[in-house]
């Protein structure tokens, strides 16, 4: 049985790396005494499949992972069973069974909704965003595995909304596609003219594009056991 769970990463734990979050999960699964399946071989590891990595310092309302279980478990109570075994700030908010034949999370996610809090006047940031969206291409230099490469940011930018936030700051909601090329939040902010100074980066949701072209969250809504959290920028 493969179970997909959604969880948050909020507050101080935003400083914990993706790799360390994976280790936290391994311990939480043992503490919750879930019947997790182990890999075969010389050094058996629990079968936990993580989604897209979240950079150190960024927060999220919508992280996902898949668990392969040896035996079925009660899904409605699974969030309540796991959350106490996780650090404050990592709360499990939904769980549902998915087919083991489904594409892996990392490959399946097509779009990510981000919320950025940046320094700057909302009106001028809004104008800069409109200008960016109007351009046919946005040549950007990105660094991958130590190598600089040219990439076009424009196809990845599905939408940008700008709102006023606290004095001197603006809040951006950005829908960023992961294909044909996946961009990091900082790369979007530096593509602005002038580049925007990042204050907070928050992942609101991840999406899979269905056959009809509609955005669906990785967990089907009807299977949600806990209502979706209010998307917000929670302070640390």
């Amino acid at each position: 049985m493969r179970v997909r769970v959604r969880f948050t990463k909020l507050g101080r734990v935003r400083f914990v790396s993706h790799r360390d979050v994976a280790r936290v999960w391994e311990r939480a699964i043992r503490r919750a005494e879930l019947p997790i399946a182990y890999s075969e071989g010389f050094s058996p590891r629990p079968k936990v499949h993580f989604g897209l990595a979240l950079s150190v310092g960024h927060t999220s309302d919508a992280e996902y992972l898949d668990l392969d279980l040896r035996d079925p478990v009660e899904l409605t109570t699974l969030p309540q069973r796991l959350t106490p075994c996780l650090p404050v700030g990592i709360d499990v908010t939904a769980a549902a069974e998915v087919a083991t034949s489904d594409t892996s999370l990392q490959a399946a996610v097509d779009v990510v909704t981000w919320r950025f809090l940046v320094d700057g006047d909302p009106t001028s940031v809004g104008r800069a965003a409109e200008e960016m969206m109007a351009r046919p291409s946005i040549p950007t230099v990105i660094n991958r595995k130590g190598n600089d490469q040219q990439a076009d940011l424009r196809p990845a930018l599905r939408s940008i909304t700008v709102e006023a936030a606290a004095e001197g700051t603006a809040q951006l909601t950005v829908n960023l596609a992961t294909r044909p090329k996946s961009f990091r939040p900082a790369e979007v902010l530096t593509a602005f003219d002038p580049p925007l100074g990042e204050r907070r980066v928050h992942r609101i949701e991840q999406w899979i594009i269905d056959d009809d072209g509609a955005l669906q969250p990785p967990l089907a809504a009807r299977l949600d056991t806990v209502g979706p959290p209010e998307p917000c920028l929670r302070a640390g």
């Binding site: 101080r12 734990v13 400083f15 790396s17 360390d20 150190v56 310092g57 650090p87 404050v88 700030g89």
Partner: peptide, 11 residues
């Protein structure tokens, strides 16, 4: 580097 060293939050 490694800011998780300074946050506490351990079980």
């Amino acid at each position: 580097q490694k800011p998780a060293r300074y946050i506490g939050c351990e079980d």
